[in-house]
Design a protein around this nucleic acid. Structure first.
Length: 874
RNA sequence: GGGCGAUUAGCUCAGCUGGUUUAGAGCGUCUGUCUUACAAACAGAGGGUCUGCGGUUCGAAUCCGUAAUCGCCCACCA
């Protein structure tokens, strides 16, 4: 009789509606006279695979975008991908290696061709997968950090900053990744605690029989030692002043220098100085004009400068040197030691501090307006605690190393001149003109210029994302940019607050003269049940697509959102998605219920239905107001919970049960029409969270035009609330629950009618509902309570169900005694408060009045309880 | 070594500028029920004194101090 299956089957509907939305171009936005609502996606790396973090992040974005659309805004969610310089290059190098091709055996052009092939093949994978999630991105606007517009924007920005003197080139100590063979920014180095050793090595004093002991974690770097340093205040070593010591094994004579940088109480108080391989030693080297001996090749093996160890790997050489030192009796002792070792964020290789020529951005002046924007609330962080993190970083900002020794990325637009020096220009022609201008040599040709082989840091393109997506760098006056910028909300993880968020804010003010977004919503990290971060290496992350297959996209979306307040890590568990799936099923079945009814337009609307309609409208209004408030504060999971309870508890368990016609009888037209209206509104409220099932049912609910969609339906006005009706229903629910408890305790079936007796002031205006929901045969007001009845008290009114022989006086008495004790205690507490003169005189009047009300309520209630006990002969 | 945040029912969390019944929700648990939308369900029940200690106050989960535990971020002690 009902063509709808008793269980919702997401697989049958999801792809269908996504295709429908695409086919009717419903995600696309163009500027018009509506208010814009814009989100730019955090571009997933082309090397990435869809993980739970993406699911969470993009669900939130989709909820925000869909809700904005339904409130009449012109919503635009721009998708795209990031070229991920290091990761992608590493992947392509590995792929080529597997095919027996060495990167350096092929030309740059050939390599880039492979990289582009790889990108074309795998790059858009995550974006495709996001469609399964229901992401309503404007796919026509899909961008890539290395497409033409974005690339040209990057180059333009580089030139702009260079001309402004904010980009410079120089030799600095940088973080070197010996695996990826490139420099990294400070942010790309992850420090991890590692158990290692503190080696105490003997350095003989030159020309004497004495020695000093130096403590180091990296004995291999003795090959590059050019001094030993002690604190000038350290009396233990005052005799060393002016002397020289011999570097063990190496045999080199190096000076002893004195600097208070050295901590006297760490290790032996004696520090070996290797200017080429340690940031601090480098500083000392500069200060004391020490030679710098670079003992490593780029790939981490020992260079020519390393004497007999040439060609050995840095970790092998550490072991070998220790053996040799032991053999030479130059090791005093070896201690266990825990220290922090820098690793490359992308390759996990141990970082070597290395002196090299790189390009840098001066950050201080860029940071100033960006810091102010967040401090002054022009940009709002959710949750606000991230402002602290941001402030700290921004006020301690260091220059940004932006050059990478890679091929995959935006090539640095600098050309070296034959006789030294360089020019920076947006293209070759311009470079040539500048070169001629600079050298005065009109016969220069392009062949004389050599472009810097290095590429730019990936984030040097990402930081422009909100601007470059709308082509705001190259054409700042274009209508898209003027309309969509600044964007509205950014949704991202706190792990890239420095990499990306902070830099976008700086770029916004520098290149667009305005903030890039108004709100930043920081999601939490998705963790497993026992709190571990989900990761590929741990294998504790479910495959998102399998989850969607199992629970449906709507179920998964809801599961994630239920547990995801902003900035809180979420403990993921499949049971969350189960809850989401179950909710879909609940929605589905309530639709089946009303779909199955016969409607009689002429039937009279029962009083109970009339009341239910009026009450539910109020209830709906209350929930909608609450949702609006919560969404405004980005408390999305709470907004979802509000509509969840509205649908499940209020609509399904109460409203539908009240208006449900008896089996085989039709429903009246008035109630039916109101119910369809409610259902329609509920679907709209749910749509941002669960787009698929709501579209499916909304389309079933009425005849729709060919290109119509719930996506573009508006959220209705919030209905007015009838507070007293809501209060009346709240009371009624308790009475019904009381009746149900009696049934349960006395083992009376739900369908067996009971009569209800009421003693006390009773408002009978909702009796029609009471009779229906309590399955009552009669409701009567009595003067005296029937002793052979099961009683319960709601407010100060006593309700009882006459049951004759089923009544156990002891049980009834015990029940009432329990209530009596509770309220006696409660009353005592209130009275204590009220008898405290200082409370009465100090507390605000309203609070005192509230306490008086509590007191009289409790007294009334106690009177009722005592009367009930008396009726039982107690 | 600095800084930030957290600690509320079995679990995940609300509880904002202290007073709204001797703390709420969802899930889970327990007990009934295959009642003609839904057992992915229905009905009912139980469960915390708010991490410890001290303080401010007429009044504190809510403010202050302190201790413990956990987490995150930053930092050049080899």
């Amino acid at each position: 009789m009902n063509e709808l299956a008793p269980k919702y089957n997401p697989a049958e509907v999801e792809d269908k509606w996504y295709a429908y939305w695409m086919e009717h171009n419903l995600f696309h936005s163009e500027p018009d006279d509506r208010e814009p609502y814009t989100i730019v996606i955090p571009p997933p790396n082309v090397t990435g695979v869809l993980h739970m973090g993406h699911m969470l992040n993009n669900t939130i974005q989709d909820i925000l975008v869909r809700r904005a659309r339904m409130t009449g805004k012109n919503a635009c969610w721009v998708p795209g991908t990031d070229h991920a310089a290091i990761s992608t290059e590493a992947k392509v190098v590995a792929k080529l290696a597997a095919e027996g091709i060495d990167k350096h055996s092929i030309s740059r052009e050939e390599f880039l061709k492979h990289a582009w092939d790889w990108t074309d093949k795998y790059g858009g994978m995550i974006l495709k997968q996001l469609r399964k999630l229901g992401a309503s991105c404007d796919w026509e606007r899909t961008a890539f950090t290395m497409d033409e517009t974005r690339s040209r924007s990057v180059i333009r920005v580089f030139c702009h900053l260079f001309e402004k003197g904010l980009i410079y080139r120089g030799v600095r100590m940088v973080n070197w990744d010996p695996q990826a063979l490139t420099a990294l920014s400070d942010e790309e180095v992850i420090y991890k605690e590692e158990r290692s050793h503190l080696f105490h090595l003997k350095y003989m004093v030159e020309g004497e029989d004495r020695y000093i002991v130096v403590a180091t974690t990296r004995p291999e770097t003795i090959l590059g030692d050019t001094a030993v340093c002690v604190n000038p205040a350290d009396e233990r070593y005052s005799w060393l002043r002016g002397k020289r010591v011999i570097v063990p094994l190496v045999g080199r004579s190096v000076p002893v220098i004195m600097d208070d940088y050295v901590e006297m109480d760490f290790g032996t108080g004696c520090l070996k100085v290797t200017p080429a391989h340690d940031v601090n030693d480098y500083m000392l080297g500069e200060k004391y004009n020490l030679p710098s001996i670079d003992i490593f090749n780029d790939n981490g093996t020992i260079s020519e400068a390393g004497g007999m160890y040439v060609g050995m790997d840095r970790f092998d050489v550490r072991r070998q040197i220790m053996e040799d030192l032991k053999a030479a009796r130059l090791v005093e002792k070896v201690e266990d030691y825990v220290n922090k070792v820098g690793h490359s964020e992308r390759t996990d290789a141990v970082i070597e501090p290395k002196l090299s020529m790189q390009w840098f951005v001066k950050m201080e002046s860029l940071a100033r307006p960006a810091l102010a924007a967040v401090e002054e609330g022009d940009i709002n962080f959710v949750p606000a605690k991230f402002r602290n993190t941001y402030r700290h970083w921004m006020t301690n900002i260091k220059d940004w190393c932006i050059s990478r020794q890679l091929w995959w990325g935006h090539r640095i637009p600098a050309w070296f001149l034959p006789e030294g020096g360089y020019v920076v220009a947006e293209n070759e022609q311009e470079a040539l003109l500048k070169a001629i201008g600079k050298t005065g040599n009109a016969s220069l040709t392009l062949a004389d210029l050599r472009q810097d082989p290095d590429c730019l840091d990936t984030w040097f393109s990402s930081w422009l994302w909100p601007i470059s997506l709308f082509n705001g760098i190259l054409e700042p006056e274009n209508s898209d940019f003027r309309y969509y910028y600044p964007t509205s909300d950014l949704v991202t993880g706190p792990d890239i607050i420095f990499f990306w968020v902070a830099r976008m804010i700086m770029a916004g003010y520098e290149f667009a003269g305005d903030k890039p977004f108004k709100n930043v919503y920081f999601t939490g990290i998705v963790r497993d049940k026992i709190g571990r971060k989900m990761s590929k290496s741990l294998g504790n992350s479910p495959d998102p697509l399998e989850l969607i297959e199992k629970f449906g996209a709507d179920g998964v979306r809801m599961g994630l959102m239920l547990a995801a307040p902003a900035g809180h890590d979420i403990m993921y568990d499949d049971s969350l998605c189960e809850q989401g799936r179950n909710f879909c099923n609940k929605i589905w079945n309530s639709f089946r219920l009303l779909k199955g009814w016969d409607v009689d337009e002429h039937a009279v609307c029962p009083e109970s239905s009339r009341l239910a309609v009026e009450w539910f409208e109020s209830s709906l209004g209350r929930a909608m107001a609450e949702m609006e408030d919560l969404m405004g504060k980005f408390r999305i999971s709470e907004a979802l919970m509000t509509v969840y309870r509205l649908f499940w508890d209020e609509f399904s368990s109460w409203y539908l049960e009240v208006i449900k016609p008896a089996y085989g009888t039709p429903i009246d037209g008035v109630t039916f029409k109101a119910t369809l209206g409610f259902f329609d509104t509920l679907l709209r409220l749910l749509h941002p969270f669960m787009p698929f099932i709501t579209e499916e049912l909304w389309q079933h609910l009425a005849e729709r035009a060919e290109d119509e969609s719930i996506m573009n339906a508006r959220l209705p006005e919030i209905p007015n609330m009838n507070e007293s009706l809501i209060a009346g229903f709240d009371h009624l629910k308790e009475v019904v629950a009381g009746i149900r408890t009696v049934r349960k305790q006395k083992q009376i079936k739900q369908h067996e009618p009971l009569s209800l007796e009421i003693k006390g002031a009773h408002d009978d205006s909702l009796d029609a509902v009471l009779v229906k929901m309590g399955n009552l045969s009669s409701v009567s007001i009595v003067e005296e309570k029937n002793p052979a009845a099961a009683a319960f008290i709601v407010g100060a009114v006593e309700y009882s169900v006459p049951l004759k022989d089923k009544i156990n006086v002891e049980e009834e008495t015990a029940k009432l005694r329990k209530d009596l004790d509770y309220y006696t205690g409660f009353l005592a507490g209130v009275e204590k408060k009220l008898s405290n003169e200082r409370f009465v005189s100090n507390a605000p009047e309203a609070v005192v009045a509230m306490e008086r009300k509590k007191k009289s309520d409790a007294e009334e209630k106690l009177a009722t309880i005592r009367a009930a006990l008396a009726a039982l002969g107690q």
